[in-house]
């Protein structure tokens, strides 16, 4: 559905994005992840035809955005980082205007407006001025604007920024639902969000793609051996000694004590051996009861920091 080839954007000496290559399949929900200033918004602005490229091209459904901008723009709904709202209009007037500039006919207009307002749940504020709405409602009106004209592709730039936790869950569910019959590119720097909604994640840093995979594979790929943290009730040194004697343990490290009379130990095992059972029996034999055993598989946060840091080191 979307093909990005060698996309580069330079502002004078500064390179905002540097030869990006990726494709998005039809119906896929792609997460775009990166620290602030990584080039997420720039890429999205190019895909939607807001700004031009310096080099390379972007194709939507096989059509080049620079060659036939109007055809491509009809296929895309865009929610920019700051929802482009007119404060002096009511929600109704605003959606009316958006329908007009997207070229909807009169009969389509009313029907699609009602459907969209239902979908993003802004029906109760439709007669209010946009400037008086809360941030959450503004964001939803912005999303409604992107949905006008039922575009096949949705490009959402940080759709949940500035919302409260309840609204974030609502918007996230909405995006999951939309993902069933839309191709979606979603940017965020909140990783849990991306891992929940997206089928595939692209991590971008300083204008370059540093990782691209499913959220699960990303955590697996970078997970070096199985690390876990175990909390046992017992004296530090003896407990550590017992653990070190278990077959398969590569490393055991004291991690201090968080509860009285207990000790936290990080245990790293050889990848192919599951040491949880032997660990349980060993501790039980030594009568140091295990109070907690937690796998330390990398979260997306860790991956994110890891890949973005690697990139800095290389430079």
């Amino acid at each position: 559905m979307i093909q990005v080839e060698n996309l580069t954007k330079r502002y004078g000496q500064h390179t905002a994005i540097d030869s990006l290559n990726f494709t998005v399949e039809s119906g896929e929900v792609l997460g775009f992840l990166g620290p602030n200033g990584a080039g997420k918004s720039t890429t999205m602005n190019i895909l939607t035809g807001y700004i031009s490229t310096t080099e390379g091209r972007a194709l939507v459904n096989g059509v080049d955005i620079l060659e036939e901008p109007e055809t491509v723009k009809k296929m895309i709904g865009y929610l920019p980082e700051f929802p482009p709202l007119y404060g002096d209009m009511t929600v109704n007037e605003y959606l009316d205007f958006v329908c007009d500039i997207k070229g909807l006919s009169k009969s389509e207009k009313k029907q699609s407006q009602e459907k969209i307002m239902d979908l993003v749940r802004i029906g109760d504020v439709q007669k209010r001025l946009i400037r008086n709405l809360s941030k959450g409602y503004k964001q939803r009106v912005g999303l409604a604007q992107a949905l006008v004209g039922n575009p096949k592709v949705l490009i959402l730039d940080e759709p949940t920024v500035g919302l409260d936790p309840k609204q974030i869950i609502e918007i996230r569910n909405l995006i999951s639902n939309l993902g069933k019959d839309h191709t979606i590119i979603l940017s965020s720097h909140i990783l849990s969000e991306v891992s929940e909604v997206c089928e595939r994640v692209i991590i971008i840093n300083k204008g370059k793609i540093v990782a691209s995979d499913t959220p699960e594979n990303l955590s697996k790929g970078l997970d070096d051996g199985s690390k876990m943290i175990v909390r046992v009730a017992g004296p530090e040194k003896q407990a550590l000694k017992v653990i070190k004697e278990i077959h398969g343990v590569k490393l055991a490290e004291l991690q201090g004590s968080k509860e009285k009379g207990t000790v936290d130990i990080i245990v790293e095992s050889v990848p192919e051996i599951d040491i949880r059972k032997p660990l349980f029996y060993a501790m039980s034999k030594a009568s140091y009861p295990i109070l907690m055993l937690k796998s330390m598989g990398l979260t997306l946060e860790d991956i994110f920091l890891q890949v973005t840091n690697q990139e800095t080191e290389v430079r």
Binding site: T48, P84, I101
Partner: peptide, 14 residues
Amino acid sequence: KQKTDQLLLTSPLP
């Protein structure tokens, strides 16, 4: 300033 040009310029309107 209000970034509403993003709406106008990314819509099919020439």
